[in-house]
């Protein structure tokens, strides 16, 4: 069986600046795969290209065996690939519930959406308690929960999270990361982009290290965690 997501020789450029240079990686069904790298390495660019918000200059993206690198973004969501963008990008003036419903925009089964709304509230009870509140009044951690809940509303097979721990307290970060494991146990495949290598690799089945647009290392989460180079560059150890 082929991988759920496969990226082959992907190259993405902003005008003359090539941000992602011929990278290849894959995500197997049921796995949590981490993509780590320093600022400007090209992580966000990679995710945006996979979800159809950017077009690659060359290379291929295959989702469930089909090429999606020229497919429209809304079609990609409908096929079961959700993207929780960097910086959360919740709709601040809309209520929690409206935000969640927008996550389900691509779906056409209102009854199923209703049930998933309840599952989102089960996953993050605070969202249920404040369903009427405008999302902009939420704290950073709460907004991150909303962003994840919203992405899950499309009932994705593969969920891509772009730096979910950004700006969160250690406790909140733990909460988010344990939710990642919970979602995995419920059968969602996850591609996790993080700068926090420790947290991301601990839970990852497999990991890739991106540096200035190139994949320089890969291995199981545990292998990378004990890798000297990774320890030096990302965990601040020497």
């Amino acid at each position: 069986m082929s991988a759920m997501l496969e990226v082959r020789d992907l190259e993405v450029a902003y005008g003359k600046i090539v941000a992602v240079k011929k990278i290849s990686f894959s995500v197997e069904q049921g796995q949590v795969v981490s993509l780590i790298g320093t600022n400007g390495a090209g992580k966000t660019t990679t995710l945006r290209t996979i979800s159809g918000l950017l077009r690659p200059t060359s290379g291929e993206v295959l989702f469930q065996g089909e090429r999606i690198d020229q497919v429209a973004a809304h079609d990609i969501v409908a096929r079961g690939l959700a993207h929780s963008p960097e910086g959360r990008r919740i709709f601040p003036r809309l209520s929690v519930e409206e935000n969640l419903l927008l996550g389900a925009f691509a779906r056409k089964d209102p009854a199923g959406v209703r049930t998933d709304l309840d599952s989102a509230y089960d996953l993050f009870p605070i969202l249920g308690e404040r369903r009427k509140q405008p999302a902009g009044t939420f704290s950073g951690g709460e907004q991150q929960m909303l962003a994840m809940g919203r992405a899950m509303m499309s009932r994705p097979k593969l969920l891509m999270l772009d730096e979910p721990s950004m700006g969160l307290s250690p406790i909140m970060m733990k909460r988010i990361m344990s939710t990642v494991s919970e979602l995995q146990s419920q059968g969602t495949t996850i591609l996790l982009v993080e700068q926090n290598a420790q947290a991301a690799l601990k839970r990852a089945d497999f990991g890739y290290v991106l540096e200035v647009g190139k994949i320089v290392l890969s291995g199981t989460g545990r292998d990378l965690l004990v890798n000297d180079e990774v320890r030096k560059a990302y965990l601040g150890e020497d």
Binding site: S51, A73, P85, F91, F105, S154
Partner: peptide, 23 residues
């Protein structure tokens, strides 16, 4: 309608709306 909700999302944050699967 659902379309109306999509328009609201576009007015609020077009890029985020796109990522949510709003065409």
């Amino acid at each position: 309608s659902r379309i109306g909700r999509g328009w609201v999302a576009i007015r609020e944050d077009e890029k985020a709306a796109e990522a949510m699967g709003v065409s």
